[in-house]
C-alpha cells in the first residue's frame, strides 16, 4: 500500500476509514447533496465567469499568442488574472523567468487561500490534494469559506468531511467548465477581430477592475501608487526587471504604512 511514496506525513494506517476507501482515486468521498448545493451556489456567477473567460480569451489571442499555445495555457495555468497579466509580457518577448515570476506574484493570493482552507484538505492523499489545488480559484475559495465559516471551530470539520469536499467540487466543476468554455470561445472570436482596435486595453481595464477591490485601505493605496511610479520610471530597464523592483517597493511602502498606522492607533 506504499503507493504514495516516502516522506508523507499521513500514513495509510492513520487515515480515517472513508478516506482510506477512496485513497486510490483522484477524488475524496463526496456528499452528493453538498455537491448539488455547490453547483447551485456557483450557477448565478457562471455568466460572469463565462464572459470574463471570453474577454481573457480574446485579449490573449489578440496579443499574438497562437491558438495552440493559448489552449495549452488556459488548461494548464487556469488562472485568469495571471494569464491576462503575463499576456503583454509574452507578446513583447520578455524572457520567460520574468514572465514566470510575474505570474507567481499575481498568484500569491492563492498562498493565503491555501493556508486558510488547508485544514479541510490536509488529510487527503497527495494526488487528491494536487487536483483540489489546481481547482481552488478565487470565487470557489470565497464561496467555500463563507459556507463553512461557522464550522471552523467544529472538531469534525477541522479534519475535512465529505460535505465540505462535495461542496468544494460542486463549485469547482462549474467554475472550471464555464471558464474553459468561455476562454475557448474567446480564442475563436479573438482570431476574427482586427488587431488595431486596441483590444489589449480591454485586458488592462479588466485587470484594473480586479485591482480596485484589493486597494480599499490606505496602506494598499500608498503601496499601489509607489508601485505605479517605480514601474513607469523603470520601464526602460532590460528584461522588465523594473516590474519586480516596483512590486518590492510597493509592498514595502504598504507594510511601512501599516506599521505607521498601527503605531498611531496604539498611541492615541
Amino acid at each position: 500500500m506504499n503507493w504514495h511514496g516516502p516522506g508523507m506525513m499521513v500514513g495509510m494506517s492513520r487515515l480515517p476509514a472513508p478516506i482510506a476507501r477512496h485513497a486510490r482515486g483522484l477524488l475524496p468521498p463526496i456528499d452528493h447533496v453538498a455537491y448539488r448545493e455547490g453547483v447551485k451556489a456557483m450557477t448565478p456567477l457562471a455568466v460572469a465567469i463565462a464572459v470574463w473567460g471570453v474577454v481573457t480569451g480574446v485579449a490573449i489571442v489578440n496579443a499574438g499568442l497562437p491558438i495552440g499555445a493559448a489552449l495549452l495555457m488556459t488548461f494548464t495555468v487556469f488562472a485568469g488574472s495571471a494569464q491576462l497579466a503575463v499576456m503583454p509580457l509574452l507578446a513583447t518577448g520578455v524572457p520567460l523567468p520574468i514572465v514566470w515570476v510575474t505570474a507567481l506574484l499575481v498568484n500569491l493570493r492563492f498562498v493565503i487561500f491555501a493556508a486558510a482552507s488547508r485544514r479541510s484538505f490536509m488529510h487527503l492523499p497527495w494526488r487528491q490534494r494536487l487536483l483540489a489545488s489546481y481547482l481552488n480559484g478565487d470565487l470557489g475559495f470565497a464561496l467555500f469559506s463563507r459556507r463553512f465559516a461557522d464550522s471552523a471551530l467544529d472538531e469534525a470539520a477541522q479534519q475535512g468531511n465529505p460535505e465540505q469536499w462535495g461542496y468544494f467540487y460542486g463549485v469547482a466543476v462549474v467554475n472550471w467548465a464555464v471558464w474553459q468554455a468561455g476562454s475557448v470561445a474567446g480564442f475563436l472570436i479573438g482570431g476574427l477581430m482586427p488587431t488595431d482596435w486596441g483590444f489589449e486595453l480591454a485586458a488592462y481595464i479588466a485587470l484594473l477592475a480586479l485591482l480596485i477591490p484589493m486597494v480599499q485601505r490606505m496602506p494598499a493605496i500608498a503601496g499601489v501608487v509607489g508601485t505605479a511610479t517605480v514601474a513607469v520610471l523603470t520601464v526602460g530597464w532590460p528584461m522588465r526587471l523594473g516590474l519586480l523592483l516596483a512590486v518590492l517597493v510597493g509592498v514595502t511602502i504598504a507594510l511601512l504604512g501599516e506599521a505607521w498606522r498601527d503605531g498611531r492607533v496604539s498611541q492615541s
Binding site: 488574472s81 497579466a85 503583454p88 509580457l89 510575474t102 506574484l105 499575481v106 498568484n107 500569491l108 493570493r109 489589449e200 488592462y204 485587470l207 484594473l208 480586479l210 485591482l211 484589493m214 486597494v215 496602506p219 494598499a220 503601496g223 499601489v224 508601485t227 505605479a228 517605480v230 514601474a231 513607469v232 520601464v235 522588465r240 523594473g242 516590474l243 516596483a246 512590486v247 510597493g250 509592498v251 504598504a254 507594510l255
Partner: peptide, 14 residues
C-alpha cells in the same frame, strides 16, 4: 499586498 502591486505594475507599464 503583492498581488495588487503586481497587477498595478503591469497596468502602469502597459
Amino acid at each position: 499586498y503583492a498581488p495588487a502591486c503586481a497587477l498595478t505594475a503591469i497596468v502602469a507599464q502597459g
